[in-house]
Each structure stands twice: as structure tokens, then as C-alpha cells.
Design a protein around this nucleic acid. Sequence first.
DNA 1: GTCTATAGTGGGATAGAC
DNA 2: GTCTATCCCACTATAGAC
Lengths: 166, 166
Amino acid sequence: MADARRDQIVAEARILLEAEGEAGLSMRRLAERLGIQAPSLYKHVPGKRDLQAAIVADGLRELGAALAAAPPGIVGLAAAYRAFALAHPHLYELMTERPLARDLLPPGLEDEVAAPLVAALGDEHRARAAWASAHGMASLELAGRFPEGADVDAAWSAMAHAFGAG
Amino acid sequence: MADARRDQIVAEARILLEAEGEAGLSMRRLAERLGIQAPSLYKHVPGKRDLQAAIVADGLRELGAALAAAPPGIVGLAAAYRAFALAHPHLYELMTERPLARDLLPPGLEDEVAAPLVAALGDEHRARAAWASAHGMASLELAGRFPEGADVDAAWSAMAHAFGAG
DNA sequence: GTCTATAGTGGGATAGAC
DNA sequence: GTCTATCCCACTATAGAC
């Protein structure tokens, strides 16, 4: 059942997404990159939604690995989270700006990614609040929504401090 | 210089945006609602960007009024912020998911809206972090990104608590 | 597994007549 | 101030031949 062509399509779709953003990921352009015509994609992938879900799953696995490898404590987790978001802005958006396609994701993956946060924050609600805070910082930073002179590093520090970092 | 027709166009554009989201706000559909043809809009508004900026300015004014009227303290501000976002999801997205068109906004408006937060949080960096945290909570909630069973109220509480609410 | 051809839908914006 | 006509662009997806 391993469909090598499918894996290649997903990989190329991710490259396209990361390079040009969600709007740039069209079936036409993806096919063009692969040297085939757009309709041919549908022999390997049911549709765009499945393509996106496969990319999101990859992103979640990588974010999970980055958080698991981060220095212990809230500061380390926040830095790792921020670094991932800034390194993969368009992927990060795809991962956070819509409901997770949980029906198309490997079971348990979402919880695995969150585990280091829950461990560091002590309980589920605090972990969720801390995640949301980091997401808010990352998403405003990625969107270019802060004013030009804003000290974003200081804001990240203040956030980590609020959640208990010395 | 008051162009009543322009005001009407902006008002209708906001209604359309709030009803159907950013993707639903097209010049064609806006014109249709107003009973004119799309090209006629351009006699009153330079383009879509200006239209969006006018809507965002309205939203900022309303959010600022809501924050200024909120019960003092972090919990009250957080509740008012959340209420605004949940009441105007599509407007809120337009206000936060892209760089502010500061060149098309009334000068000083952005700072006015933020003033209650800066006052409550004590300094600029903490205020920015708290804003980002509230934005993260609101945006994940609006996006339907939390898992189904998640206790979002508890997460909002944990967030307010982290920033110093008793 | 790929192709051609094509269906259908939507978008922003402009020129020029009236 | 509104219109018609039109330009250009983009997209998802399908049918059917090879």
C-alpha cells in the first residue's frame, strides 16, 4: 500500500506551501512542479483536504519532536515553539488556523505533541492557556501585526514569566 | 466631504463581512446587496483595501469602547475581549490576521484601544504579552481548534490567573 | 498513470458610454 | 453616478482517451 508517488506529491505540496503560502498551494501549481497535469493528481490523492491533512500531520510530528527536545522549563518550550513557528510560517498557519482534521490524523498524535507542555505546566487548563498564549504571540508575530517598534522578545519573556518562569 | 453613499457602502460591506466572512466580501457581492453593479463601487471607494481598512477602524473603535467600559482588572478585560471576538468572529479575524493598514487608520486609534490593557498590566511588554495571550485564546476558540471536550472557560481563567488575577 | 479537454465558479479591476 | 462590456486572473474537479 506504500504509494511512493503519493509520498512524493505530499512532499512537493509541503515545499510549495512553505514557499508560497496556503493560497499558493493549488492543484495546478503542484502538478506543474511535479511535471504532470493537475487532473493526474487525483489518481493519487482524493483531494486537497487530504493533502493538507498529510502536511499538517508531518508538521505536528516535527513540532512534537522540537518540544520534546527543548530545554526543560517554560522558557525552553516557548523558545522552541516560537522557533518552529518562525521557521515554518505557512505550515504553522495551516496547523493552527482551522479545525484539525482529526479524522485524517494518526490517533494519539495531537496528545503526544502536547505532552511536554502539560508536564511543564502542571495541569491541562494551564497548559492550554500557555499554548494559546504562545500561539497568540507567534501568530501576531507572523502576521506582522505588532507595531514596528515593538520589542517582541520582551513580550515573549513577559509571557513566559507570567506562566511561572523565573 | 461627507460622502453618504460611501458610508453606506462601508456599512453594507461590514454586514457582508460579518455574515459571510472575509472570503464572502467581494466587490461583486457587495454591489449586488446595494443594488448596483460592481464597477460603480469604484466611484466611491478606491479599492477593496480601503474598504477593509474602514471596517477595521470601526471594529477597533468598538473594541476600544468595550475595553474601556469593562470592569477593572484583568478578568474583566479578558471577558470583554473574548466577548467582542466571539460576537464578531469575521471582523475580529480581519482585525488581527494581517498587518494593520496603519496608513489608512485614524492616527492614535491603535494606542487608544490598547490603553486600558497597558494601565491594567503595568508595562508595555506585559500588556503586549497579555494581549497576545487573549488573542491566542480567542483565535483558537474561533477557529474551532481546541479539542471537542476542552474546557475553554477554565483555560481563559488560567490565563487571567497567570497574568495576575487573583 | 498520464493525458486533453472542459465543466463550472469565483475574483479585482478598468474603459468608456450615458 | 451608474451602466455595459470586458480583461485578466485564479481555482476544484470530472470525463474519457490512450
